[in-house]
Amino acid sequence: MSNYPSRTDIVTAMRNPLVSFKSQEIIGGSIIQKDSRIIQYSGGYTTVFPFHKQTGNKVAVRLWIADIGDAKKRSLEISNYLENLNNAYFAGFKYIDDAVLVNGTFHPIVLMDWVDGQTLKEYINSNITNTSKILELAKKFKEMAAYFHLENIAHGDLQHGNILIKSDGSLVAIDYDSMFIEPLSGMTDTIKGLPGYQHPARHSNQFVNSRLDYFSELVIYLSLLIYADTPKLWDDYYGTEDLLFSKDDFANPSNSKLIITHLKSVNPTISQLTEKMVEELKATDIAQLRPLEDLLMNRRKVAKDNIFDKWEKQPNQAVKKKVALPNKNDITNKF
């Protein structure tokens, strides 16, 4: 589909449900308005409407305003995959073809479960003085990242607007246009994510793969640890498109005041992870990046394990000599 509607055209269509709604999933439903204003959330490639289905259930209706390359195939594969996965880290997600008529042309939608929660930045802002809550958030984020790795999937655009924290503290990732799952192997990496979360090599990455999130995970986890340790930093970054680090920090880490400061942190986890970030920034391809759990491994323990591993694999291992004590009777019998 080469011709995508403008946001204005889509809003006009959504205001006229009797003419525009063609899918049974949304017929009888309505967009949500505040007074006379339609509520919508706009991204670079899509626009999203909070929506009440005929049943009264609140969902999100999402339409494309620009081409992300094989949007239908991506969405169908992800829809089927997430339905089978049935995991709480993801919202319900369903691709529906020819669902809305806009300017005489049928357009697809994605219907998503509505998730009530705070974005990552909203949650941090509400709890910045509560160190234990920020550390608990970091722990839960680390667990989510480990689950993604276990399932060999990547979200592809982990950032503050795409991570929601529900009232019970659980995390939900939303917006799956950049996602990698095995059925999408070989598809183009079109949406690169926010620069303040991405490794510089992401810009030249060609295809989606399971390593898309590795650097973003490090950025988010380390940032949370730093905010728990130094909450006064938050005021400087809340209003930016970054969580903490910026693309300038990544482009020139040796001149980054933020990186230099935290390399010297008295918190060993922060200093070690900042050092790992500098190491990761030397990579020229995201295929060279390591997952968060590997970066968190204790360096001394790894070295110790490597020493013992090498010892056990020696081709001619030293054998402990057995010392046989002489038999007492053998000695006395000689006299």
Rank of each mutant, 00 (worst) to 15 (best):
S132W: 08
S223G: 08
V302G: 07
E136A: 13
K264N: 13
D285N: 15
K320D: 08
I10H: 02
P5L: 10
E312V: 10
P183M: 03
K58V: 07
A228R: 03
A324V: 15
I65K: 02
N209G: 12
L244H: 09
L120Q: 09
E217I: 09
A60D: 00
Y81G: 01
N84A: 00
L76F: 08
G44D: 03
E83Y: 15
P253T: 05
A201W: 02
V266H: 13
Q206A: 15
I226S: 04
M297E: 15
D98E: 14
N87M: 06
R211P: 02
I260A: 12
A303K: 13
D229I: 09
N86K: 02
E25V: 11
K140R: 15
S265H: 03
N130M: 12
L120I: 12
V115A: 04
G156I: 02
P315G: 00
L218I: 09
M14D: 06
P326S: 15
I181R: 04
P291M: 07
N205M: 14
I31P: 06
I260Q: 14
I270F: 11
I134P: 08
E143W: 09
L289Q: 09
S2H: 11
G43Y: 02
S216K: 02
A173W: 00
Q198D: 07
V61Q: 06
H199K: 10
M112T: 04
G193M: 01
S210H: 09
L273S: 04
T12N: 10
A201P: 05
D70C: 10
A91C: 13
G161E: 12
L150K: 15
F49Y: 07
G104R: 07
M112E: 12
S167E: 10
D229Q: 06
T8C: 06
I27L: 05
N125G: 08
I68S: 05
K247H: 11
Q33I: 13
I38Q: 01
S42V: 00
M297V: 12
T129R: 13
